[in-house]
Design a protein around this nucleic acid. Structure first.
Lengths: 388, 388
DNA sequence: CCGAATTAGTCTAAGTTATGGACTAAATAT
DNA sequence: ATATTTAGTCCATAACTTAGACTAATTCGG
């Protein structure tokens, strides 16, 4: 249920409203903010004053808005004080990103580690060192890291920060959060979800799409009106196990003919006769060289993706579809088939078939989404930070 | 974005908070409300006073809560003043229901009309007469009908109230809302969505489920945390066109092997060699008589439903699955297969496979959901009604 | 070059709502 | 019969937002 609204909550909401508009518009004058929000000039001035004092917003300079009259003083979100950290454990690397409140990426750090060969305990130790060193660097440049999120390729219990199952890492029931000691509040979340959020805040721009994360598994994150759809238990978006053909190849989930058995990374590499060790780069080389098996594998994967996505479109009606992860570099070979398959299965029903686009972020999406989530939280409720 | 919060908005939200708790708990004392909401006793008293004055809430009587002390005066939502109307156009009938603010169904009216044989104009005329007569009856018993929603089996543009496409009625681009003259504000919405909402407010009780409406087409409404998920264009929940087998029978949507080609009403009847004219009753008779074709058709439909639902569960992660429409009476013959198919495809991945339940409402779900939506709106923002 | 017009931002008195604590009311326990 | 406990009201106060007066900084017209 909603909470009781007292004077302080009223103020908190208006503070968030103002900061949200400043963040969305880049820079605005107080007068414009009053116009936009419907709040009185006085109120806006006071709220902006508080935000400036807290270091969340800075005055950028005088700008003439209309033809005549006193020019306004524009303000924008300050990137000097508050920052957030995004962490990621993936199959073959650990990564950290620091993003400031204005959504500029301040620090990028990626560290190759074969996490399938390493015990969870060791991975966690390395990750903790990485996080601490990155935070030190951030603090040195005057930033205050107010929080962080850790992206993991698997299902996560958000409340406890426990990894329920991460098949690609070979992890089961690892209480990640309680094993990590960080000098900032940390949460753990699913990599596909965070990648979708990353795309939302740092990529495409539109606030309605289904973001597909092709990795060894295939995940998806659905963004509706700028918000992530999680489902009841938080496991929504398991596109990899949507049915493509019920009599198809057996899948590790127990079913048959899931999308993953057609379009997962390992399957693609195997079907293309590319070296598994070379990863996606090897496949790309084969494709460039015109390897028929590789081309056929992509064709098949694209068709399967189209079939699965047609089910997804019918069920959740996304605005557009963004292909990320390994599908981003493979887009030239699969984009066309996906679009055609989708159109063939949806064209009669819908006036508009969602367009299929490429992600602009590549592998960085999840870490950026992770850090972005903390930033978003500050912008959505700055009062929580001021009063803390 | 959120709106500016002024004193009146603060009051409006607290009013909604109090009324919401009263509605959710049946009857409560002011003291308990203060405890629950966190508002001061004084504030609760004033808010409840306003709600009583507006006729939205009434005092029911003195009740002893604790062991000692002055007994509290309980209040509950009043069903005496405010009511809403739910209307439905379906293939072979028109229906109207009047529901009061306490969610009691006050008037039920169903009128058989073969809407496939009747022009939209004539259908609308009959519906308007029905609506007016029902509202008259409601007014006679002291109710004030504050709004209504009309359920239609097809895709609807919510903003304009235009039926985009209703294949079972044979309608295309009918501007329903602008053709209807009603003495209350009216909206038009999709039947499957409203049926899900009906189940939410008048049926199962839990606030997280996927409600499947089996009719000639197969639709679904997803309820998450008590809210309907609509998707970007408002067309989410088209379960009928989720892929069961990509090489399956051709579907009117242009695709192949959609769920509808296995589990739609007409397909079921045809496969069971039941008379199409007799409708679902005919099929039920055949099943009771042990007709092998009919049993096999149900087996096949249940399997297909299970396959499609496994995709749905992977994508949207519903709390439970509720089977409504024709699947409610057919549940004894399909429920088992659906559950088994679902378990076989999901068991390895998830600890908990959503349970498959029957709808308690049958054909009434959509009209109740329609009226309920208006009631819900009043409870979510009573201030809008007070100030109007 | 100066005054009128225009727009931005601040200051102040007033309005609305919630609150805390004192108060009254109505019951049980001793 | 009195103390204790709980429900609900009353009233002075506090925390916001607001409207409108005011000051500041600019352009326009003569």
């Amino acid at each position: 249920m909603t909470q009781a609204v007292r004077h302080d909550a009223m103020r908190a909401r208006n503070l968030a409203l103002v900061l949200g508009e400043v963040s969305a518009r880049g820079s605005v004058t107080r007068a414009a903010l009053a116009e936009i929000t419907g709040l009185a000039k006085t109120t806006v001035s006071k709220l902006v004053g508080d935000l400036i004092e807290a270091g969340l917003v800075i005055e950028t300079g005088v700008v003439r808005v209309g033809e005549r009259g006193r020019p306004g003083m524009e303000v924008r979100v300050s990137g000097r004080r508050v920052a957030a950290i995004g962490l990621e454990i993936n199959v073959d690397y650990l990564a950290a990103r620091v993003v400031d409140l204005s959504r500029s990426v301040r620090i990028r750090r990626t560290q190759p580690v074969d996490n399938r060969m390493t015990s969870p305990g060791d991975v966690i130790a390395i990750l903790q060192d990485l996080a601490l060193s990155v935070v030190d660097e951030a603090v040195d440049s005057g930033l205050r890291v107010v929080g962080g999120v850790l992206a993991v390729p698997g299902t996560v219990d958000l409340a406890t920060g426990t990894v329920h199952s991460a098949p690609n890492l070979g992890w089961r029931d690892v209480p990640l959060l309680s094993l990590l000691r960080t000098p900032f509040p940390l949460r753990v979340d699913n990599e596909a979800n965070l990648a979708a959020l990353g795309e939302l805040w740092f990529g495409a721009g539109h606030p309605d799409f289904l973001h597909v994360s092709g990795e060894i598994g295939v995940g998806a994150g659905l963004i509706v009106r700028g918000e992530l759809f999680r489902g009841f238990h938080g496991f929504a978006g398991e596109l990899g196990h949507v049915v493509v053909s019920p009599g198809g190849p057996p899948c590790r989930c127990g079913g048959h003919g899931c999308l993953e058995t057609y379009a997962g990374q390992d399957v693609l590499l195997a079907a293309a006769n590319a070296e598994l060790g070379a990863g996606i780069a090897g496949l790309l080389a084969e494709l460039d060289a015109g390897n028929r098996d590789a081309l056929a594998a992509c064709e098949r994967a694209g068709w399967a993706l189209g079939v699965a996505l047609s089910s997804a479109v019918n069920l959740v009606d996304p605005g557009t579809i963004v292909l990320g992860g390994i599908y981003a570099p493979l887009f030239p070979w699969i984009g066309g088939v996906v679009t055609e398959t989708l159109a063939a299965r949806l064209g009669q029903m819908r006036e508009v078939v969602p367009s299929v686009e490429v992600s602009r972020l590549g592998t960085e999406a999840a870490t950026l989404g992770a850090a972005g989530q903390v930033i978003q939280q500050v912008i959505a409720d700055p009062a929580a930070l001021l009063n803390a």
